Each structure stands twice: as C-alpha cells, then as structure tokens.
Computed example of a mutant assay.
Amino acid sequence: MTEIKKLMTYACVLCALLCAVLMTSGCMDDNNSDGTNNDNSNYATYSDSKNGFSVKYPDSWEKMEMTNRVTFKNNETNALANIAVLSMSSLGATSLEEVVDSYGAPGGEYTTFNGYEAYETIVSDPSDIDTRDILFVDGDRLFILSYISYLENEDEIETMNMILESIEVE
C-alpha cells in the first residue's frame, strides 16, 4: 500500500507542477490555428505502441513524450492534456477501488468512461482553472487522463474533452 501512496503523492505533485507550468509559462505565437477548433480534420493521431493506446489531438498543439506519459499543450493558452499509463502490479493494486482508496480524490465519483469502469473528478475554480481527471483500468494498466485549462477559454474545454474521450486502448 505504501507504494500506491507514494505513486499517488507523485501524481499530486505532478499535477501541481503542471499547474505551475500552466500559470508561469509564456504564450507562444502560433499562426496555424487558435487550438480551439473541434473540426477533426485539424487533428493528428498519437499512437503509443508500448503502452497500447492512441488518441487524437489538435495538430497545432505541442506533443511532449515522457516515459509512460504524453502531454499535449496549446502554446497559445497553456492548456494541457495528459495521459499517463502505470502498471497496476507495480503499484501493488488489483483494482480501481484500491487505487482510488489510496488516492483519496475528493469530490470524485465512479462512472463509466469509454466502456470502462472509471473514477472521475472535475474541479472548476471559479476564478481561474478547470481540471478533469479520469482513472480506469485495462488489464494490468492504470490509465490516468487529465486536463488543466483556464476557465476563460470555454471552447478549449470542449477540445480537451475531445482529446481525452478519443482514446482508444489496444
């Protein structure tokens, strides 16, 4: 169980770091697109054969690949969409409930996401940002999907949801 707590603490720290990046990084000029167009013709497909998934994202967004994680960033608004994949066995967990109990995510609820039993939290800070976290398990893989966006960019929230909901697990 301590490994799960360590991992969840790491996930919380990662989320805090992503928030810090979101709040402190400067905007870059990108003349290709405003990043909020939900027309799928402007979307690229990211495939991760190691972790067994693919996802669509606006082709004007920056893609940042890390071990067991990919992040998509709109450089104009600093919004971030993140997909992380962790091994359940390395966490010492056998179910989504065990992960959630260790994580203790406040305000979340069990739901269904793309056909998977999932746990989801949505938090809107009325003065600043909107976040969404979705956890689901496929075999020995724990998928953690999340986004962080400024609330002033409501159209972007639709784009963020489209990114997360486009995931296809192999």
Results as ranks from 00 to 15, higher is better:
residue 148 I to A: 05
residue 144 I to H: 08
residue 92 G to I: 07
residue 46 Y to H: 12
residue 6 K to A: 13
residue 13 V to A: 15
residue 20 A to G: 07
residue 85 V to T: 11
residue 142 L to I: 07
residue 107 G to Q: 05
residue 44 A to M: 15
residue 153 N to F: 14
residue 138 D to C: 05
residue 48 D to C: 09
residue 63 K to A: 10
residue 139 G to C: 06
residue 169 V to A: 07
residue 34 D to I: 03
residue 53 F to Q: 01
residue 94 T to P: 00
residue 80 L to H: 05
residue 121 T to C: 01
residue 29 D to E: 14
residue 1 M to N: 12
residue 129 I to P: 00
residue 56 K to V: 03
residue 59 D to M: 10
residue 156 E to W: 02
residue 19 C to V: 13
residue 126 P to M: 09
residue 161 N to V: 10
residue 46 Y to G: 01
residue 147 Y to F: 15
residue 67 T to R: 04
residue 46 Y to N: 04
residue 142 L to F: 05
residue 103 Y to C: 11
residue 114 N to Q: 09
residue 49 S to K: 13
residue 139 G to K: 13
residue 95 S to K: 00
residue 22 L to F: 03
residue 51 N to A: 08
residue 105 A to F: 02
residue 67 T to N: 05
residue 127 S to Y: 02
residue 151 L to C: 11
residue 79 A to F: 01
residue 17 L to K: 07
residue 142 L to D: 02
residue 122 I to Y: 08
residue 115 G to I: 02
residue 72 F to D: 00
residue 64 M to V: 12
residue 125 D to E: 13
residue 86 L to P: 00
residue 62 E to S: 09
residue 13 V to Y: 09
residue 39 D to F: 07
residue 60 S to A: 14
residue 85 V to A: 05
residue 132 R to D: 06
residue 104 G to M: 14
residue 134 I to R: 05
residue 10 Y to T: 09
residue 93 A to H: 07
residue 58 P to F: 04
residue 98 E to Q: 15
residue 54 S to T: 14
residue 155 D to T: 10
residue 21 V to R: 14
residue 90 S to C: 02
residue 26 G to R: 12
residue 10 Y to F: 09
residue 109 E to D: 05
residue 134 I to D: 01
residue 31 N to P: 06
residue 120 E to M: 13
residue 74 N to F: 07
residue 167 I to P: 00
residue 11 A to F: 09
residue 155 D to F: 11
residue 139 G to V: 08
residue 57 Y to F: 15
residue 76 E to P: 00
